[in-house]
């Protein structure tokens, strides 16, 4: 028979105004760093923000934002995501800590459904969702489970990365998602990604430089805010906030 948990998901996110998944074709292009900094940036602008780490094999938003692993989770007829630097945060990492979590397809779906069914986000202006690269099970699941999901693509300026973005776009254009646009990370100042966006008919949201100070700033919110990455993100966020969404 039907899965009762799926019925409650719309109720759990009904007061979340915009639901944005950070996606990419290739791995390692900066999704996790950008998802975390986008959430941080929105929070600094006074928005109420949630961050959901859905990369089950390699959850790492908590490392970027320096969220302690011994955080306790509050229950109130479901789970209330703990608050860090103004961000409501949820990740399986809060439960598994350092342990390996070898999950396959159906297990991943089950875990995502359970997580979405029991987490009470409350009212949020933005829910940012970090995902694994490519057309992962995690991405496919939230595309089907989260109504009005918007997608934000991250890439680096490389033929290899853009090829995989094309393939991802083929999927995204088939399903029901509003593609916000593409962010060029680790930019080299070329117009390769901008040109690509024009050809694909998607919005070019801006570029982010390679910042060697990032590594040292990881885990330290104040230091992160001082990186040139955060500066570029603020500019990009103004564009994203200004967009009218239709659901």
């Amino acid at each position: 028979m039907m899965d009762p948990r799926i019925s409650i998901i719309p109720e759990r996110i009904k007061d979340v105004k915009r639901r944005i998944a950070i996606v990419s074709g290739k791995g390692g292009v900066g999704k996790t760093v950008l998802a975390s900094l986008l959430a941080l940036g929105l929070s600094s602008m006074g928005k109420i923000v949630g961050l959901l780490d859905l990369d089950f094999n390699g959850p790492s938003c908590h490392i970027v934002l320096g969220i302690p692993e011994d955080t306790s989770i509050k229950e109130e007829k479901g789970i209330i995501p703990p608050l860090f630097n103004g961000i409501r945060f949820m990740s399986l990492e809060l439960f598994v800590k350092e342990r390996a979590l070898p999950l396959r397809g159906d297990d991943i779906s089950n875990a995502i459904i359970e997580l979405l069914a029991i987490t009470r986000w409350g009212s949020l202006d933005y829910l940012i969702i970090d995902t694994p690269p490519g057309t992962s099970d995690e991405l496919l699941d939230i595309l089907r489970l989260i109504d009005g999901l918007e997608t934000l693509i991250v890439t680096i300026p490389s033929k290899l990365a853009l090829k995989t973005v094309s393939r991802l776009l083929n999927l995204l254009k088939m399903v029901n998602t509003n593609i916000i646009g593409i962010i060029e990370n680790m930019s080299k100042g070329t117009d390769m990604v901008r040109e690509f966006a024009r050809r694909e008919g998607i919005r070019y949201l801006g570029s982010i430089p390679y910042d060697e100070k990032l590594e040292e700033a990881l885990g330290d919110v104040d230091a992160l805010k001082r990186t040139s990455i955060s500066e570029s993100i603020t500019t990009i966020l103004h564009k994203i906030i200004g967009l009218k969404i239709t659901r």
Partner: peptide
Amino acid sequence: ILRMVHEWALAESIVRAVLDI
């Protein structure tokens, strides 16, 4: 009371699912 909460979330999903059906 602490244990109740998760049971509550799942019970809520059952009721909603039955209403949907």
